[in-house]
């Protein structure tokens, strides 16, 4: 489903070149639950951004659902992000002036989906994430855990095939953190491919597959718990 072949990502900083990703080869199957660990600066976020088509590899090939992402133009990339990819960020990234429900429906709004269908989908996802009574609250009226669940609802409203979470529990306390993880895992149970970048050993231990990255390379790829 996701296939990375000899992916390099270089950044030029002054006259130096930083190899954020250095020859990454990776196959991720449909419905996998993958955690990515590694020290700060090892390239975890860069990897996630490339998988999410927010960033482009300096060299190498990337296939998403058998499609060559490297060949896509801006329009095709945007469409692929909208349909196939869900992002969950450490800092939630909710639009402060919109309510929870309005934040959740944003991907559908951008895709031009009719309001009636949107309302129905938003209602469904709100209920499944136990946020129904928070639909009309703005982000500042929600707790951190609730905000992240709204962000997850938004990431999954288009029923994408991959959910990319970059340290989703980084800004949360222990309890809401594990609630968020449980939510993500439940979505994975229902078939979504889940990729979580984390510093938390406990989370990595729960995943069925775990990558270790150091200096832009994958140094270990453990399958099974």
């Amino acid at each position: 489903m996701i296939r990375l072949e000899q992916i390099h990502r270089d950044f030029e900083v002054g006259d130096q070149i930083v190899h954020a990703l250095n020859d990454i080869n990776l196959d991720i199957a449909h419905g996998e639950y993958l955690s990515v660990m590694g020290p700060s600066g090892s390239g975890k976020s860069t990897l996630l951004n490339i998988i999410g088509i927010l960033d482009h590899a300096t060299s190498g090939r990337y296939f998403l659902n058998e499609q060559n992402v490297t060949d896509m133009d801006e329009l095709a990339e945007s469409r692929a992000r909208n349909r196939h990819i869900g992002f969950v960020f450490q800092s939630f990234h909710l639009v402060p002036r919109l309510t929870a429900a309005q934040n959740i429906e944003l991907p559908l709004v951008l895709a031009g989906i009719a309001p009636a269908l949107r309302r129905q989908k938003v209602q469904q996802v709100l209920e499944s994430l136990s946020l129904a009574d928070r639909a009309h609250h703005t982000p500042d009226q929600l707790s951190g855990g609730q905000r992240q669940r709204v962000a997850i609802a938004r990431a999954t409203i288009t029923e994408p095939s991959v959910l990319l979470a970059d340290e989703p529990t980084g800004n949360l306390d222990q309890k809401s953190g594990s609630e968020v993880i449980v939510t993500l895992e439940a979505l994975n149970q229902r078939g979504i491919t889940l990729i979580v970048v984390t510093h938390d050993k406990n989370i990595a231990d729960r995943s069925l597959r775990s990558l270790q990255m150091v200096d832009g390379r994958v140094v270990s790829d453990r399958h099974g718990r």
Binding site: G52, L54, E74, L75, S78, R79, R81, N82, R83, F87, F89, H93, V95, L106, P107, L110, A111, R154, T158
Partner: peptide, 12 residues
């Protein structure tokens, strides 16, 4: 916010 809606699939 602009980065976010790009991530959600907004075109330039």
């Amino acid at each position: 916010e602009i980065g976010l809606i790009r991530a959600l699939g907004a075109r330039q």
